[in-house]
Simulated scan of single mutants.
Amino acid sequence: MRFLHLDSIWVQGAMRIKKPEKLELEYVQRMMAWMLWRDTRELTQGQAVQLGLGAGALTRFCRKQLKMKTTAVELNPTVISACRHWFHLPDDDDRFRVLNEDAGEWVADAANWGTAQVLNVDLYDHEAAAPVLDDEAFYANCHRVLADGGLMTVNLFGRSASFARSAARIAKVFGSDQVWHLSPTREGNTIVVAGRGVTVPEREVLEQRAANIEARHELPASKWLKLVRPLPMNVIQQIREQA
């Protein structure tokens, strides 16, 4: 295993050297939970965007395993360099690119609106204390980046972060009926899934999708399905208070 640290004790990413496309960290696997909400026949269509490169795990997976058009946006050039040298990140081509840009500015650019079917948001500094971008304006631009039926996953973790506050901001933009979360990992990572006009299928369909994801991509999707929750009442209350 190879781990990425940004001048701190916090693990910012990991890769199994002999299996670089395999998702190793549990919370990173759960960042792919959007696959449950997407029709199996359309699973690999469109563009996947990662805000925050980390060790490139999601980027490699979407490009190699799902064969999606993939874009990663990373502010720190050292992270990009490390991924190129140590984490098997390939060179850019016509279906893959890594942008050394500010994620907030990228989602605010109207040229990028409506271009992503999948948006993975994992934005932390070297201290991993709280999300770097976490306000309502940022999530509103994330919503604009998604095409109709698109899905966003957000890693909410940090010693100073408030899940309820962040989830309420997301739900205020996306609508409370378009936001779900998975129970926290042992390390405290809570993954939020938010959709733009997504219809939730029947339980039987979700179970079939989970089985397909496990068979084709070796991800614990049946476990995800058991962990998915609607927004808790304290989050709903915060939304009402903000209205």
Rank of each mutant, 00 (worst) to 15 (best):
M1P: 08
R2P: 00
R2E: 04
R2H: 05
F3Y: 12
L4D: 04
W10P: 00
Q12K: 13
Q12F: 06
G13P: 02
M15E: 15
E24V: 15
E26G: 08
Y27H: 09
V28K: 11
V28P: 07
Q29C: 06
A33G: 05
W34I: 04
W34D: 15
W34V: 07
L36D: 09
T40A: 09
T40I: 13
T40G: 04
T44C: 15
G46Q: 04
Q47Y: 07
V49S: 02
G54Y: 03
G56F: 07
A57R: 03
L58M: 14
R60E: 11
C62T: 15
R63T: 09
K69E: 09
T70N: 07
T71H: 01
A72V: 13
E74A: 02
L75T: 01
P77A: 12
V79T: 02
A82V: 05
A82F: 04
R84Y: 06
H85E: 05
W86D: 11
F87P: 01
F87N: 01
H88T: 14
D91P: 09
D93I: 11
D94T: 04
E101T: 10
G104D: 08
E105R: 15
D109H: 01
D109F: 04
A110L: 11
A110K: 14
N112V: 00
W113R: 14
L119Q: 05
V121D: 06
D122P: 04
D125K: 03
H126I: 06
E127W: 08
E127K: 11
A128S: 01
A130I: 10
V132K: 12
L133W: 00
L133G: 01
E136A: 13
A137R: 07
V145A: 11
A147Y: 09
A147T: 13
G149H: 04
M152I: 09
V154Q: 05
F157T: 00
F157V: 04
R159G: 12
R159F: 07
R159C: 00
S160E: 15
S166Y: 03
R169Q: 02
I170C: 07
K172G: 05
K172S: 14
G175V: 13
L182H: 09
S183Y: 06
T185M: 12
E187Y: 09
T190Y: 04
A194R: 00
G195K: 08
T199L: 06
V200Y: 10
P201H: 10
R203G: 04
V205E: 11
A211I: 07
N212W: 08
R216I: 10
R216H: 14
E218V: 11
L219R: 03
A221I: 12
S222K: 08
K223F: 04
W224R: 02
W224S: 06
L225M: 14
L225A: 15
L225H: 14
K226T: 10
K226L: 11
V228L: 14
P230C: 13
P230G: 09
Q237N: 10
E241L: 12
